[in-house]
Measured scan of single mutants.
Amino acid sequence: KYSDMIVAAIQAEKNRAGSSRQSIQKYIKSHYKVGENADSQIKLSIKRLVTTGVLKQTKGVGASGSFRLA
């Protein structure tokens, strides 16, 4: 599940300011076997996790910027 992968990526990075979408994508692609549409799936999952309150956006708008666990 992409949401689990995103949470794992943010936990692994341990950046106080949060993790960027690009760094999350890079982590997921190197640690998991994902399909061609992974980028758009990650983007959608990040937006969903922010609206449900699992992630907090520290910089930027939408799916860009930095995110950390709430």
Rank of each mutant, 00 (worst) to 15 (best):
37 N>V: 05
17 A>K: 10
8 A>Q: 07
64 S>G: 13
32 Y>A: 01
10 I>G: 00
54 V>W: 04
16 R>N: 09
41 Q>F: 10
28 I>Y: 00
12 A>Q: 05
69 L>K: 03
32 Y>P: 02
53 G>M: 03
68 R>F: 13
67 F>C: 04
17 A>E: 10
64 S>Y: 10
31 H>V: 06
43 K>L: 15
51 T>Y: 10
17 A>W: 14
16 R>V: 11
65 G>Q: 13
4 D>M: 11
13 E>G: 11
27 Y>P: 00
37 N>Y: 06
1 K>N: 12
6 I>A: 02
39 D>A: 09
10 I>V: 12
15 N>S: 10
59 K>W: 10
9 A>K: 00
18 G>R: 02
46 I>H: 00
47 K>F: 10
49 L>D: 01
30 S>Y: 07
14 K>P: 09
23 S>G: 05
3 S>D: 15
3 S>Q: 10
28 I>D: 00
8 A>S: 06
64 S>D: 13
14 K>L: 06
63 A>F: 10
7 V>F: 06
43 K>A: 15
49 L>R: 01
20 S>R: 03
31 H>G: 01
52 T>R: 12
12 A>W: 07
51 T>Q: 14
16 R>D: 10
31 H>S: 03
2 Y>G: 00
36 E>V: 12
19 S>Q: 03
29 K>I: 08
36 E>G: 11
68 R>Q: 13
67 F>W: 06
6 I>N: 01
13 E>R: 07
46 I>W: 03
33 K>G: 07
41 Q>M: 14
67 F>L: 08
54 V>T: 04
14 K>Y: 08
33 K>C: 11
25 Q>I: 15
55 L>Q: 02
9 A>M: 03
43 K>G: 11
47 K>V: 09
51 T>M: 14
25 Q>M: 15
22 Q>F: 08
23 S>M: 07
64 S>L: 13
58 T>A: 07
11 Q>C: 15
32 Y>S: 02
40 S>G: 06
25 Q>F: 11
45 S>D: 06
62 G>V: 05
14 K>E: 08
12 A>M: 05
68 R>N: 06
55 L>H: 00
36 E>H: 11
70 A>Y: 10
29 K>T: 07
9 A>D: 02
44 L>I: 11
10 I>Q: 01
1 K>T: 13
11 Q>Y: 08
9 A>Y: 04
27 Y>N: 00
29 K>S: 06
1 K>P: 09
38 A>D: 04
28 I>E: 15
49 L>E: 01
43 K>Y: 14
34 V>G: 02
45 S>V: 14
42 I>H: 01
34 V>T: 05
60 G>R: 09
45 S>F: 10
67 F>N: 02
30 S>N: 08
4 D>T: 09
59 K>A: 08
66 S>D: 05
39 D>R: 05
24 I>W: 02
3 S>I: 11
45 S>M: 14
22 Q>T: 09
56 K>G: 03
19 S>M: 11
57 Q>P: 07
51 T>F: 11
54 V>E: 03
52 T>Y: 08
51 T>I: 14
57 Q>V: 14
47 K>L: 12
58 T>I: 13
35 G>W: 04
55 L>W: 01
69 L>T: 04
67 F>T: 02
54 V>S: 02
65 G>R: 13
16 R>E: 12
60 G>V: 06
57 Q>W: 15
30 S>Q: 11
53 G>A: 03
69 L>F: 05
26 K>S: 10
34 V>W: 03
15 N>Q: 06
34 V>S: 03
42 I>S: 01
55 L>F: 01
27 Y>I: 02
50 V>Q: 03
62 G>N: 07
15 N>V: 05
42 I>K: 02
67 F>S: 02
35 G>L: 15
9 A>E: 00
7 V>K: 06
11 Q>S: 09
8 A>N: 05
40 S>T: 12
4 D>F: 14
11 Q>F: 08
29 K>W: 05
12 A>K: 04
11 Q>I: 12
69 L>H: 03
57 Q>Y: 15
48 R>F: 14
44 L>T: 08
54 V>G: 01
56 K>F: 11
42 I>R: 01
36 E>N: 13
53 G>S: 02
48 R>C: 15
46 I>Y: 01
53 G>L: 03
41 Q>D: 09
21 R>V: 15
1 K>C: 15
57 Q>N: 06
62 G>M: 05
